[in-house]
């Protein structure tokens, strides 16, 4: 549900960027959504589709979502490992205390405008 307020924030930011660059139309928006960001990507996409279509500036904008890989860090030896899901043990020291390493970002990477 909070995806909608985040889309609204994004559209405001796009309006500022367009004004700054004297652009009338946004063609592409590239966004990084971390696997731990708490964002449901489908909800975000849906919100963007609906809300962006209501505004001239973003009517034809394409949303590209980049998902960075999951990374976990060992609390003992600091080893960082890229995996599909939370590993049971550290591959370096075999201890079990692992925490997510970043991956909670929701970052506007790049905007293409005409």
């Amino acid at each position: 549900m909070h995806e909608i307020s985040l889309v609204q924030g994004l559209l405001k930011q796009l309006a500022l960027l367009a004004a700054e660059h004297g652009s009338k139309s946004v063609s592409k928006v590239r966004l990084e959504v971390g696997p731990h960001s708490g964002i449901v990507i489908d909800s975000f996409k849906f919100g963007f589709e609906v809300l962006a279509a209501e505004i001239d500036l973003t009517r034809h904008a394409r949303l590209e979502i980049v998902i960075p890989p999951l990374r976990y860090k060992c609390c003992y030896c600091g080893h960082v490992r890229q995996t599909e899901r939370l590993p049971e043990t550290c591959s370096q020291c075999a201890k079990t205390l692992l925490v997510p390493d970043g991956g909670d970002g929701l970052i506007l990477l790049q905007v293409e405008m005409e």
Partner: peptide, 12 residues
């Protein structure tokens, strides 16, 4: 003119 702007800013 076609602009490609690297923003790199959190939506939050």
């Amino acid at each position: 003119h076609h602009h490609v702007v690297d923003v790199n800013q959190s939506l939050l």
